[in-house]
Amino acid sequence: MANSPTSSSVSAPCRLEWRPSRLLAGALVLLGAAAALAVLASEMPRGLAWPLAVASGLWGLRLARDETRRPVQHWVFPADGRVTVDGVRVREPVLVWRGPLAILRWRDGQGRRHGLGWWPDTLPAAARRELRLAAGMADASRDRRPMAP
C-alpha cells in the first residue's frame, strides 16, 4: 500500500526507577529479631547471650535503616543493550529472575561489581513485564554459542 506508514523495528527503551523496598527492610528487622531470639534460646551463658541478642537485634535495625536510605536510581534498558543508570553506562549487565524478584548485577567503569533487586513492592506487574521484554531483547542480540567450545 502506497499510503501505509513505515513501521520501525526499534522499540522504545524500558525506563525504570529503582527505589528501596519496604518489604526488604521489614524482612531485615524480622531476621534481626529472630537472631536475637535464637541466641536467647540457645544454651549460651546468659551473661554473653543478652549482649549478643541485643547486638543482633540492633544490627538488623541498622541494616533495615541503611536499606531504606539508599538513593533512588533511574535505569534505562534500550533495545541495543546499552543499559544505563542515572545516565552512566554499565558494563556486563545480567538480569536474573527469582519468581517476582528481579536481580540485576553489573560492573561499573572501574570494574567493580554491583547488584540490586527489584522487590514486588517496588516493581509493579506491568513494569516487570516490560523489564522482561527489554532484557530478553538485549540477550537476543548477544552472540552466544549453543554449545560449549
Rank of each mutant, 00 (worst) to 15 (best):
15 R>C: 08
132 R>G: 09
130 E>P: 09
118 W>Y: 08
112 R>V: 10
111 G>E: 05
72 V>F: 03
128 R>M: 04
81 G>K: 06
114 H>V: 08
59 W>E: 09
41 A>D: 13
63 L>S: 11
96 V>R: 15
101 L>C: 01
131 L>A: 10
25 A>R: 00
121 D>S: 06
142 R>A: 10
117 G>V: 08
139 D>Q: 14
90 V>D: 00
85 V>Y: 00
142 R>H: 07
143 D>M: 11
77 F>Y: 08
119 W>D: 01
40 L>A: 13
36 A>P: 07
13 P>G: 11
92 E>A: 11
14 C>P: 00
38 A>N: 09
44 M>N: 03
108 D>W: 05
100 P>K: 08
74 H>R: 15
55 A>M: 11
95 L>F: 13
49 A>V: 06
96 V>K: 12
143 D>A: 15
148 A>Y: 05
68 T>N: 09
147 M>E: 12
94 V>R: 14
133 L>W: 05
61 L>I: 14
133 L>G: 06
122 T>S: 04
108 D>R: 06
120 P>N: 07
148 A>R: 13
132 R>N: 03
97 W>T: 09
48 L>K: 01
145 R>C: 09
136 G>Y: 04
110 Q>F: 03
61 L>W: 11
114 H>F: 12
18 W>P: 06
98 R>F: 09
146 P>S: 12
1 M>W: 09
68 T>L: 15
39 V>A: 09
